[in-house]
Amino acid sequence: MNVFRLAGDMTHLLSIMVLLLKIHSMKSCAGISLKTQELYVLVFATRYLDIFTTYFSFYNTVMKIVFLVTSFSIVWYMRHHKVVRQTYDRDQDTFRHHLLVIPCFLLALLINHRFTVREVLWTFSLYLEAVAILPQLVLLQRSRNIDNLTGNYVFFLGAYRGLYLFNWIYRYMAEKSQLRWIPWISGLVQTALYADFFYYYIKSWKKREKLQLPA
């Protein structure tokens, strides 16, 4: 595993830890989109099906379990925890996220590496992950007050796929891996969607000001 891949995984893990920290310590999910969190559950559930069929490494298995368990528990907290769920911005989190699921699935049926159940679901998870942040970005734009943990959560979540882009370049150049257009283009789209957010996040960080996105 190269340094970019490891940094990407750690950033991804860090983003989830930051979100769990917010939920546990502040007992709040204000500013967090349940729609995005539900999409991540679907992303992980369809991508990590191979946990039962293929063993890669101890690291790989542990990380998959962590991502599955944490994504399910975040959704559980936001929906069912008696305190946390009251902080959910239901009225502002109105993105119709199921409208993202069907086009991604159709695209995975049409454009995939191999037409098998496992491969189509894996491809679907890549396409869906690329756009899963959209409800969260819309909610952030509507939020007057973006607290630090929420801002950092979204930043780390965006940085993770950006680091994967470097990992893919490295694998292609140094390890002579094959062309892998499906994850590459999905990852590129995913990272590009954060461009605006990154710009304002870094600007506010430099000026030591509170993060606010223009409407």
């Binding site: 991804h12 293929t54 890669f56 790989n60 990380m63 894996w122 990992n167 891996s177 094959q178």
Partner: peptide, 10 residues
């Protein structure tokens, strides 16, 4: 089978 080549990523 080149499944393993890229499915080891998360």
């Amino acid at each position: 089978d080149d499944y393993d080549d890229y499915h080891d990523e998360l």
